[in-house]
Design a protein around this nucleic acid. Structure first.
Lengths: 345, 345
DNA sequence: CTGTTAGCGCATTCAG
DNA sequence: CTGAATGCGCTAACAG
């Protein structure tokens, strides 16, 4: 059995007051005679009493809790974003439930249910199914049902048929900046490595890449656009394919920094120097980007702003205020040493 | 206002049964006529009803929730450990509350209170004050008060005066292995870089290091033991000090892999090759250790076992079973390419 | 197999 | 300023 819980009744009895009065000093919602107050506070401290927030939430029908759904807490992009968002939520008086789905769709459903049952006041969806370019309609239905009960904000994602509030990074302009940079550095043969087809962030980036290149009158060789995934290992894998290319690009844009790291690692291992032989750029500006030699030129996600805005929108929804349906967060270019001007040898 | 919640009463009314019967199908704790069952299930699905776990927890006096306290979710050591622990907790039917204190002692107190108020069934303490070699007695008192209400397990930490259950990595033998390795590689001048004095993991490692060295008849130069911290930046900082040494060790053991990364980065930048000029080893075997060139030789923390054991002990405590007071988890040596045999030039 | 009742711990009426 | 009573949503105990 559990140790017997102390309740406001116990406190009340010992302080010779009514439970209501104890409650009043706990919440500070009504005036209590200083004398009475002191007596009660003493007893509370004596027993080290803490009010049961479950009971409180049950009564108020709000838990002051926000749930986060994310695919992988180990990925620096998510851990950073979570950290920023969480800190801000805390300032606003919300605690958070982190649901790390480990890229598993079943977990995602379970957690979604669990958050509803736990009566969270709102949900921040950082990743998972909302990243699929083509929405599975079953998931969409599930999502809609959740949204009937709990406000939800999607970060860097969407679901077709689901009318959710969205906060997203301006990935298009990020990729544009990268292409501009490389082209200005005289690169004409540019590839795009990593990511996964069908995942929206990848598709958006790839499409933007192709469009911008064409606008500049530079073709894109299909063989230079290679999928793989989002991890360092994916980068290694795709770099191997890159190496086996008959004609190689002189510069590559990677789907994210981890991929860039994997790519650089393998190229280096096989004797290609970055940036001397190949220029490599990434995306996200995770903390490793500046540390991994030679230092990766990348696009910085505005983690603070992204996280804060998401929370802000969600809290507005919770309080039934109006909130912008879609907010786009700008990115910025971070120059480091993984790319340089191209010159024929 | 909140949207009106649907309750088992609503379901009961619509299905022409009593709330108790609805509850029975929800919990599956008692037999219900298939016919009745179907009727109820239909209504539940029609309204997409989910039971309120707050109410349930209030009644049962257990929330099936475990709280985690950790200093920095961005640190791969913690994010990996959390991931493993969480997955196992989930298997056991527990969901988790992650409390990322951001290395802030005030947050630690707040979260501790919050977890008690949220009626978590147990707390896993992954880091923070339990890492101080000298325990602040105020913190110890606070801890004890928490432990009167909720079972707690310390992972890789302790508090003097607090009689907690502990699960910890065998850091001593880990360091021993590293020293053995380096000595076998003919290194005689070995340094220890990073960590912070007063943090137990650092102190344990440093002491072990000094002892083992002395046992081998190899002295340790005080100037070769340099504090800094636990991040890549700390490694960079301490590497700068290393470079300014009159006489340098030929090999260094770093407090953890991030420090090793920082050290390698700076040494490389200043023209010293790792491992040709200096051998560098780390600790933890974070996923980066294998990716950061040249690949860092390190001690692997047994994340799975560490996390699972912690959860197992905690769950035993929750269920008021006996549990081993202290469990030591073995480590293993992971050989990569950041150290090599020493030979005079 | 099913219904009735009571209470988990708290905060909020409404009286006094 | 304080106390008594009520109900948040659920399930366990007890009848039937």
């Amino acid at each position: 059995m559990k140790k017997e819980n102390i309740t406001i009744y116990d406190i009340a009895k010992e302080a010779n007051v009514s439970p209501a009065t104890v409650s009043r000093v706990l919440t500070g919602n009504a005036k209590v005679r200083p004398q009475t107050m002191r007596k009660i506070v003493d007893v509370i401290e004596k027993y080290n009493f803490r009010p049961n927030s479950l009971a409180r939430s049950l009564l108020h029908k709000q838990s002051k809790t926000i749930g986060f759904i994310l695919p992988d807490i180990n990925h620096p992009f998510f851990s950073t974003l979570v950290q920023k968002s969480e800190a801000f939520a805390l300032e606003l008086g919300y605690t958070t439930f982190l649901c790390n789905t480990m890229n598993n769709s079943e977990n995602e459903s379970k957690y979604l249910q669990s958050l509803v049952e736990k009566q969270v006041d709102g949900i921040i969806y950082l990743g998972g199914r909302i990243n699929d370019t083509d929405t599975d309609q079953e998931y969409a239905e599930e999502m809609k049902k959740v949204m009937e009960r709990v406000p939800v904000v999607f970060v860097n994602g969407q679901m077709s048929g689901v009318d959710a509030h969205i906060v997203r990074t301006d990935e298009e302009s990020g990729v544009e900046m990268l292409v501009e940079l490389l082209v200005n550095l005289n690169h004409k043969k540019i590839g795009f490595l990593g990511g996964l087809e069908g995942i929206s962030s990848t598709d958006v980036k790839k499409n933007t890449f192709v469009n911008v290149m064409e606008n500049k009158g530079l073709g894109v060789n299909k063989g230079w656009v290679l999928d793989a995934g989002f991890s360092i290992e994916s980068g290694e894998e795709v770099a191997a394919k890159f190496l086996s290319l008959k004609e190689r690009p002189t510069a590559v844009i990677c789907a994210n920094d981890l991929v860039a790291i994997g790519v650089i690692k393998v190229l280096t291992k096989f004797g290609l120097k970055v940036p001397d032989d190949v220029s490599v750029v990434g995306f996200d500006d995770i903390y490793l980007a500046k540390h991994f030699p030679p230092g990766i030129t990348t696009i910085s996600q505005n983690y603070d702003q992204l996280g804060q805005t998401a929370i802000k929108v969600l809290v507005d929804l919770i309080n039934e205020k109006e909130a912008k349906k879609e907010t786009v967060i700008p990115t910025s270019l971070v120059l480091r040493d993984s790319c340089k001007i191209f010159s024929e040898k």
